[in-house]
Amino acid sequence: MKRLLTFLTVVAAIVVSGCKPSAPDSGAPSGAASTAGGSAAKPLTIAFLPKSKGNAYFIAARQGAEQAAKELGVKLLYDGPTEPDPAKQNEIVETWITRGVDVIAAACENREGISTALRKAQAHGIKVVTFDADALPDARSFFVNQATPEGIGNALMDEAARLLGGTGEYAIITASLTAGNMIEWQKAIEKRNAEKYPGMKRMALRPCDDLKDKAFAEATAILNANPNVRLLMNICSPAVPGAAEAVKQAGRAGQVKVIGLGLPNENKRYVKEGVTDTVILWRVVDLGRLTVHAAAAVARGELKPGATEFSAGALGTFKVIGDNVLLGEPFKFTKDNIDQFDF
């Protein structure tokens, strides 16, 4: 037995030492070649990084990205952390650097955290664009901007004030206290509240861990603990149906308004029943599609700094301001139009 183990160890050592040195010769140069800038023969490889997988929002974005990849004839890689985690995002970017891709399109969980890795990618000749949430400006060429934090915050706050007639108490349900862009939205909401709507008062801010069931429990507790709260503002997508269900079960549909950032499909039922008033979101599928178009254009040198317009084929032409490609204003899904969308 002992001899057998020794033998195995030796074999293992030979295999390990045998495969390692020979590899760099074949691997490294081709890596340099592919990152140096896609030659005409090889299709571009675009790596698409969501904040987290298993999130319906990014699934919708991916749907658009894949459509664009087909339109452009590029290879699309889709991978991300299973939970939103800045360190895991870095790890994935670092591995893509090793793999050698042409462009990375990233939705950044955390601006400073990911920028370190994205800069490194740029140093290796990989083009970087961001979408959904930006990195630091020096870590990417373009940001496909679906809406600024101010744009989102203002839209939500304005809608809340409109529904309550400018005065009243409201509460916010968020995913977690540490999620990067939600913090920015909260700040924008607070600022808009202070500047324009002195009559509006935020009574509570609760995290729901990005879980619908927990959002339901939180919303119920908020409504019972603060009987004067007249509106629930939900800034993560599972919280919108969760809060709507809570209002419905409390028998206060109509008295307590529900608005939030969410996907049309998850909210159709409540919007039609009149529980949820407005769901605000951009056209996520288009965001994914535009991002891949922009990524390919950057890699091919068609989208350069100084551009004022970007034509994304069948999708249309988009405005470019500075280094932001603008998708357009956030969209309001209401009873009247929600049936036209399927994502």
């Binding site: 760099p24 691997g27 490294a28 890596g31 793999r99």
Partner: peptide, 8 residues
């Protein structure tokens, strides 16, 4: 792709 390299 490029798995068996010293860099990786």
């Amino acid at each position: 792709t490029h798995f068996a390299t010293v860099g990786n």
